[in-house]
Amino acid sequence: MEKKTNKTSLLNLYLAFARIGLFTFGGGYAMLPMLERECVDRYGWTTRDELLNYFAIGQCTPGVIAVNTATFIGMTERGLLGAAMTTLGVVTPSLVIISIIATLLSNFAHIAAVQHAFAGIRVAIGVLIINAVIKLIKQNKKNMLNAISIAICVLSFLTVVFFDLSPVFVVIAAAVVGLAFGKKEEDNK
């Protein structure tokens, strides 16, 4: 990553996160592809590694993960004011869209075309999340592609999918294991 010389503009932070809010469909990690696109690829505000840190923290702190991540990135870019911008940005589309729907289209969710469109969109979201996971693993070859990391990744997947345990439990367990046995990275790039 190159060193930034200019400060990120507050307007850019607000607009980027308004776009992310606008194009996030579904909860939680559905926003990951958009976050990567805007914050890693387009602006270089963060790295995929850091995003994972934020997600892990967001998982066991209160609040919506999308908002937590927004606050984190705003905070690291421009401090408190930046955090306020990203947080307001990510909730603005919801406020506008929901208010319009609540006023005009009280039966919005029951319109056939809306239901069909969203059934299709959910398939695309699934594909996008899978691609995001593949990218996370590939781009972190150095950190991810050793046996232990893969084992941890698979174990946390299985714990949630097959044993129905809360992700909060997984994060806390991983943090404890990391504290005890984790290794320090020489280079965080």
């Binding site: 990690y29 994972l52 059934a119 991983a174």
Partner: peptide, 29 residues
């Protein structure tokens, strides 16, 4: 200590994201 913690948290978070991907794919497909 912070770096050690995150060295395990990152792969775990990747697994969690994969799990949520699976949930979405299963529900939709």
């Amino acid at each position: 200590l912070v770096q050690r913690t995150f060295s395990v948290l990152r792969p775990a978070a990747t697994g969690l994201i994969a799990a949520s991907g699976w949930t979405v794919v299963n529900d939709a497909v």
